[in-house]
Design a protein around this nucleic acid. Structure first.
Length: 792
RNA sequence: GGACGGUUAGCUCAGCGGCAGAGCAUUGCGCUUACAUCGCAAGGGUCGCAGGUUCAAAUCCUGCACCGUCCACCA
């Protein structure tokens, strides 16, 4: 052995040894040393890393903690399965990919759906392998034969089954509801995907004159005057004495001259602004709810492209939001409706990815009726069927669950699992065809009029039998879907465009069916929408186990523990609990351990833009995987923030070297070792053996209660300051210059025993170096340390 | 507007009712045949502030201050 430990010469070799042993696979685990069979299944489903990027330190921490648990339980004699996977990470990945396109001067909207999907697919495929190899470098003892990807066909099938079950039981519905729309990414987002930022803004006070009495008016305050074009009411608090007389009367909406009612609603606060609120159901979540309660009309004045719609009327139609706001304020002022404006600080919802202001918008989406699912999850936590290791998360969880709102699970992005819903293409028409506005369609194709369009179509072999001038729908064109496909393939437009510009939406969508395939070969159309990634990820624990190997689900579900970062408590953990109970009737895991978020040494969040991201693999190259793992776990006590500094890794690199040299000395001293030759222990022997036992018990207790850092520190201190500083110094003399053969043999036994057990205790934390040493240990009992037996 | 967490050695953090701890950094002495990526030793803290409970409090309770985080339909 060399005087210095070189991880590079050891780690790959050892990982290969493990791989070839087959011991990562629970079906190949050997019986225990005394012939006892393993009986207790222990399973962890790995939170699948996003397939769009290389691993970061958070992954390294996750891998370390989970590998510690798995290796520990394997040594304890359990049938251990750590199931790895990769996540397509829908929106996240598409955002990353769009940025990549932007750098290349391209836009997602240049590509049709199939092409874009394929491009992302190829991109992700490369990264999946990178991430896998990185997990191996970290020593992850997961069963690669059961590796799953969230877009595996069998996983998708299960996601569809769950969706259908939810639909059939009335827990998923299609609704025209107010959603969070990101104008940049052109998709709806769930409430969780909206972040709030404080902004310096203005509050405008506007007069709404009473109908029948132009001199009287009610005063409203708003931060978004442009939405007034879509106002359909003014609301006041039912207790508000100021407005009691006005309730039930009507006001004339300025600029628009629409008569709208004054009504009462509890959502209005007495103290705020003037106490009277303009109600715009189409563009504000609260207003939408008020609108629902009072059956108000929803008037859409802002489009998905962030511009005022034609409904907004001249001169505002077509203006960007900010432009419209300016103009409306000017017009109000000119016509004497503006009372005042004052600076105002409030928080504004923005897209958590791009920071663009979220536009609340009425849109038709799929929602999960979440309350019934949440109730079961709340109960499970209360009854302890699922336990948070750290109680503080229990409160946070329950609070969130108590206030949960229906979950929008449809997204207007391509990268994901298509929502398995088929809409009838054209109700009342025998043909499968879609309506378009004649002018818009011609403009899109670069044509002037219908005559040109006719000619254009004939060029493709389509005649009047296939292209029907809309019968009874003036100014519209009905296009045969085969022809649409042809035009799409020629690049004239893409599916988004079709979706956004077809004029028969409401008509054609009045009939739909759930299913992977259309109910009939023709006459059905699938929207390009996909599921929120978390809708499928929420099913991950059972979807994986139901599709790996026969019997896996029965054997390993519910799984033992879910270990993940606290930042995805709501996104993922909560959804897994809800959907796990819903789909299987059982909890997906019994315990939840949340690790902290790794910050840089100055406690700053690591991000690419700050340039403070630490690449775990570079750290491994420099110091070895064991050192990184030990450094991470040594300091993993906090469950919120974990500052990471290279000095911590260096300290553990030194520890690895210490282990190496202690072993080097021990192995040299054990060349003529005979386990059975020991006789009488000295007092020092008994002391160290007792301390070994106590340390083993403490580590066991700490690992059982997820006190990883305590366990790691105990192992560290015992090895360094008891075994190295005392035990080795003690036996050194007795072996080198023995007083008797018996005492030498006893000293050797103590050395062998303490070293051997220390290796076992350290193995979950530092698997490579301990395994490497174990392979040279005399009188070893097992083919590998990873399938040894825990010393207590 | 709610809820939660933190405040301990120069730095990063453990400890959470019973003599103040670790790693890094600092200082001194040691290249003794496992290890200089080391060993031995040393310095350094009225454990945020103010009360209270207790034989005993960094540790429990109350209030305050300062940081930080999460949630929320602030027009």
């Amino acid at each position: 052995m060399e005087a210095q430990y070189d991880p590079k010469k050891v780690e790959d070799k050892i990982y290969q040894l493990w791989s070839e042993s087959g011991f990562f696979n629970p079906d190949n685990l050997p019986d225990l040393a005394n012939g006892k069979k393993r009986t207790k299944p222990y399973c962890i489903i790995m939170p699948p890393p996003n397939a769009n990027e290389a691993l970061h330190l958070g992954h390294a921490l996750m891998t370390t903690l989970e590998d510690i648990l798995i290796r520990y339980r394997r040594l304890r004699g359990d049938i251990t399965l750590w199931l790895p996977g990769a996540d397509h990470a829908g929106f996240e990945t598409q955002v990353v990919f769009e940025k990549k396109l932007e750098k290349e001067g391209k836009s997602r909207f240049q590509f049709d759906r199939e092409t874009l999907y394929q491009m992302i697919w190829d991109y992700v495929q490369q990264n999946k392998d990178v991430a896998q190899n990185q997990l191996k470098r970290l020593g992850a003892s997961c069963d690669w034969s059961r590796n799953k990807f969230t877009l595996d066909p069998d996983i998708i099938k299960i996601v569809y089954q769950t969706f259908e079950k939810l639909y059939n039981e009335g827990l998923v519905y299609r609704g025209l509801r107010i959603i969070n729309w990101c104008p940049k990414h052109q998709t709806g987002l769930s409430d969780l995907e909206v972040k709030y930022e404080d902004r310096e803004d203005k509050l405008w006070y506007i007069k709404y004159p009473l109908v029948g009495d132009k001199d009287k008016f009610i005063e409203v305050a708003t931060t978004r005057p442009e939405t007034m074009l879509g106002d359909t009411a003014v609301a006041v608090n039912p207790e508000d004495a100021r407005y009691k007389k006005l309730v039930g009367q009507k006001v004339l909406l300025p600029l628009v001259n629409r008569e709208i009612p004054i009504l009462v609603d509890d959502a209005v606060e007495l103290e705020f602004g003037t106490g009277a609120v303009k109600v715009t159901p189409a563009h504000d979540a609260t207003d939408f709810e008020i609108g629902q309660r009072h059956k108000l009309e929803t008037i859409v004045v802002i489009g998905q492209d962030d511009k005022m719609t034609t409904v907004a009327g001249t001169p505002y139609a077509g203006l960007k939001i900010v432009e419209a706001r300016q103009k409306i304020v000017q017009d109000l002022e000119a016509q004497g409706f503006l009372i005042k404006e004052e600076p105002y600080r409030h928080s504004v919802g923005v897209c958590y990815k791009c920071g663009r202001v979220i536009e609340p918008m009425v849109s038709e989406q799929w929602f999960v009726r979440i309350k019934p699912l949440a109730e079961r999850a709340v109960e499970a936590i209360k009854k302890g069927e699922v336990k948070f290791v750290s109680e503080k998360y229990e409160k946070i969880f329950q609070h969130w669950m108590a206030n949960i709102r229906d979950w929008n699970i449809s997204r207007q992005i391509v990268w994901g699992i298509k929502i398995p819903v088929w809409y009838k293409t054209s109700v009342g028409s025998k043909m499968e065809a879609v309506h378009f506005n004649e002018k818009i369609l011609c403009a899109k194709l670069g044509l002037k009029n219908e005559a040109e369009f006719d000619q254009f179509s004939n060029g493709f072999g389509f005649d009047d039998r296939n292209i029907q001038w809309a019968s009874g729908r003036k100014g519209e064109i009905l296009l045969y879907v085969g022809y649409i496909d042809l035009l799409k393939s020629k690049g004239y437009f893409d599916e988004y465009w079709v979706e956004q510009n077809r004029t028969d939406k409401n008509l054609s969508e009045s009939e739909f069916r759930i299913g992977e395939k259309p109910p009939e070969p023709i006459g059905w159309y699938q929207k390009p929408d996909t599921f929120d990634t978390w809708f499928s990820s929420g099913q991950w624990p059972f979807a994986t186990l139901q599709t790996t190997k026969a019997g896996d689900f029965e054997r390993f579900y519910p799984t033992a523990v879910m270990e993940t970062g606290w930042d995805i408590l709501f996104f993922w953990v909560a959804r897994m609990i809800m959907m796990g109970f819903y789909a299987t009737g059982q909890e997906p895991f019994r315990q939840i351990y949340m690790h902290g978020l790794i910050r840089d040494k100055d406690k700053k969040k690591m991000s690419k833009s700050k340039g403070n991201v630490v690449n775990p693999l570079a750290v491994v190259d420099e110091n070895g995987a064991d050192a990184l793992r030990m450094a991470l776990v040594f300091n993993a006590a906090s469950d919120s923030d974990l500052p990471f500094g290279e000095d911590k890794v260096v300290a553990q690199k030194r520890f690895a070297n210490k282990i190496w040299n202690a072993a080097r000395f021990s192995l040299l001293s054990l060349e003529d070792f005979n386990e059975k030759a020991k006789t009488k222990f000295t007092a020092a022997d008994e002391a160290i053996l007792k301390e070994l036992e106590e340390t083993a018990q403490k580590i066991t207790k700490d690992l059982d209660s997820f006190n990883f850092h305590e366990a790691a520190q105990s192992a560290y201190h015992f090895f360094w300051h008891s075994f190295c500083d005392k035990c080795i110094e003690d036996v050194k003399e007795r072996i080198k210059e023995p007083v008797s053969a018996e005492d030498k043999a006893t000293a050797q036994y103590v050395l062998w025993k303490v070293l051997g057990d220390s290796l076992k205790l350290l193995h979950p934390f530092m698997p490579f170096i301990t395994e490497e040493i174990y392979q040279s240990l005399p009188e070893k009992k097992r083919p590998a340390l990873m399938v040894e037996e825990w010393p207590c």
